[in-house]
Amino acid sequence: MSTLGRWVVGLAALPLLHACGSLPTEPGDGPPEKTVDVSGVPEPVPRAEPPSRYGNPDSYEVFGETYHVMDSSDGYRERGHASWYGTKFHGQRTSSGEPYDMFALTAAHKSLPLPTYVEVTNLDNGRSLVVKVNDRGPFHEGRIIDLSYAAARRLGVYATGTAPVEVRALNPAADEENPEEGATPEQRPDELMELVQNAGSVGERAEAGPVYLQVGAFREADNATSLRRRLEAADGIGPVAIREEAGIHRVRVGPLDDRGHARRLGQRIADLGLPPPVVVPSR
């Protein structure tokens, strides 16, 4: 995009950029009228996405201050204070063009590329959460990230309004696993029946060997650990383990000898908003 084009995009985005610079304590903003249970909202899974067409100008100006958008989130880690925003902006367009959903796990940041996935850790209580950065803000000194209402509730920021946090960018592009030569093909859940149907009785299944549901494969151990924690926090999923092979950290559920149990677990994992797991024979 030309410099002029980016300047025009920046001007068009300014009304959106102003939105999440507000405090939750301002008139018209705050929590929903009735308390909403957000404990079951699944954390977003970092994945490579194209940059937002509207949310990534070279620079933009808010309240007389000029902000520069980073070319990449690689290596980003920062400590500061988090705030949150709620009902006043619910349903409005974010700077990336997506509607703001106060019940999703999202956030706003002044300079990270949109979208970026980050892990936010509340330094007061140690809680960590993965959120998707899809908006701009907060435009207040000392604040580095504006959390959605749901994210603020989960991290314990809601009650205090602000909290000291560490924000660490996650790089899904670096975690994508390249195909490995000689690897055994892995089956999707709809192929599980074919994999285990020929096993017959429990004894015969044991002879054939158990299967595992592989939910993710990462080069970064921290990302694998985050996924394992998310799976372990869900009811009825386990055992969960990380298997490291040739620098790839594979998050697997199992071993599973029962085909019905494996199908149910696969569906349960998909219901969390995660990609369908692949079935890996024991080998």
Rank of each mutant, 00 (worst) to 15 (best):
Q187D: 11
Q187W: 09
Q187H: 11
R188C: 12
P189L: 13
D190K: 11
L192G: 01
L192I: 06
L192N: 12
M193G: 12
M193N: 12
M193S: 12
M193D: 13
M193W: 15
E194M: 12
E194W: 12
L195N: 08
V196C: 14
V196E: 05
V196G: 03
Q197M: 05
Q197K: 11
Q197F: 08
N198R: 05
N198H: 08
N198L: 08
N198Q: 14
N198I: 06
A199F: 09
A199Q: 04
A199L: 08
G200E: 05
S201L: 11
V202H: 01
E204F: 02
E204K: 10
E204I: 04
R205T: 14
R205W: 06
R205Q: 12
R205L: 07
R205C: 09
R205G: 10
A206H: 09
E207D: 03
E207A: 04
G209F: 00
P210E: 08
P210D: 07
P210A: 15
V211A: 01
V211P: 01
V211I: 13
V211T: 02
Y212S: 10
Y212F: 13
L213H: 02
Q214N: 02
Q214I: 02
V215F: 07
V215G: 01
G216M: 03
A217I: 03
A217G: 01
A217E: 00
A217H: 05
F218S: 04
F218T: 00
F218M: 05
F218H: 04
R219H: 15
R219S: 13
R219T: 15
E220F: 08
E220W: 02
E220T: 14
A221W: 08
A221L: 14
D222N: 13
N223C: 07
A224S: 02
A224L: 02
A224E: 08
S226Y: 08
S226K: 09
S226E: 04
S226V: 11
R228Y: 04
R228E: 15
R229L: 10
